[in-house]
């Protein structure tokens, strides 16, 4: 029971991260590696403000900090013409130093006996408090992002990722759309890190490492399991919960934690290259059949 409850809570929290990746990877069509840095940025901002007694403000400012990180990456990509992947890596690298600075040059910090966003609801609802609160945050975020994607601005952002040539010749500022898209994506990523920090009550400088891959794994699961529906954002959350459940079960059967990143990476490779692999296998069997038929 605890296993399911924990996975659901974490799935909801990391779900925001997956939605962020969905915006950059699926909608803007950019693999945005800023995420590994901005996730930690969110957690760092969140922990500092929580320690100062402002947990809610911590969450909000974390999102703003994440948006700023996204804006930096967009600037590198569009105005300085740096390749998208490299732009993300550069921002992520720079953020490592900035994240350390935010945390007062300490590589990890904890939040014992501090009031967090979860404190009030925990007292009111007991063990279900965290789940309910995470769900609430998720519903609000999904609703806001979904609304955004249906505005004129949202349509323009989607078009930019889909066909930049068209966007350029139809009076939409494609560069501006990338700024907006990456800012929203990284705001969600940082928000995810910020909530996670208050949930697990600590922040570590390396907690963002590998987050892109984990989010991509969740994204793929979400698309496979729930992609038939039109509710892609909900699919992202469900995918993340399933990923967290698999992760927790793997730990239950005592697969060492250190193997998990390798397993996740291999999973993402297989999931993304699945169509290519299927084609290869089909071609191979077609060759064999043809050769057999003509007697060679």
């Amino acid at each position: 029971m605890d296993l399911f409850l924990g996975s659901a809570e974490q799935g909801l929290i990391y779900g925001l991260l997956t939605i962020g990746i969905y915006i950059s990877y699926r909608i803007l069509n950019v693999a945005d590696l800023t995420v590994d840095g901005s996730f930690t940025t969110g957690a760092a901002v969140s922990i500092m403000l929580t320690l100062a007694g402002h947990p809610v403000l911590g969450i909000l400012l974390a999102a703003v900090a994440g948006a700023l990180a996204g804006i930096v990456t967009a600037f590198l990509q569009t105005k300085l013409k740096i390749q998208p992947i490299l732009a993300g890596i550069l921002t992520m690298t720079a953020l490592y130093t900035i994240n350390l600075a935010i945390m007062g040059n300490r590589p990890n910090m904890s939040l014992l006996y501090q009031e967090t966003i979860f404190t009030g609801i925990d007292e009111a609802l007991g063990r279900w408090g965290e789940l309910v609160f995470c769900l609430l945050i998720c519903v609000v975020c999904v609703a806001l992002v979904s609304l955004f994607l249906h505005t004129r601005l949202g349509l323009s952002v989607r078009a930019t990722g889909d066909n930049e040539d068209m966007v350029r010749s139809s009076s939409i500022n494609a560069d501006l759309m990338k700024f907006i898209g990456l800012a929203v994506a990284n705001a969600l990523v940082a928000l995810s890190g910020a909530v996670l920090c208050q949930y697990q009550q600590f922040t570590d400088i390396s907690m963002g490492t590998g987050m892109v891959v984990i989010a991509l794994a969740s994204l793929v699961i979400g698309e496979v399991v729930f992609g038939w529906s039109k509710l892609m954002l909900a699919a992202m959350i469900i995918g993340t919960i399933i990923y967290r459940l698999i992760y927790a079960l793997a730990l239950q059967v005592e697969i060492p934690v250190m193997y998990m990143k390798l397993v996740t990476a291999v999973f993402v490779i297989l999931a993304i290259s699945y169509p290519v692999i299927v084609d290869k296998i089909k071609l191979h069997s077609q060759k064999r059949r043809t050769n057999h038929a003509i007697g060679q």
């Binding site: 349509l155 989607r158 078009a159 889909d162 066909n163 040539d165 068209m166 966007v167 010749s169």
Partner: peptide, 18 residues
Amino acid sequence: KGTAPNMTIEENMALAYM
């Protein structure tokens, strides 16, 4: 070059409309 393939006809048209 002139249309976004993963968006619907009406979404494409709406982009031009605005």
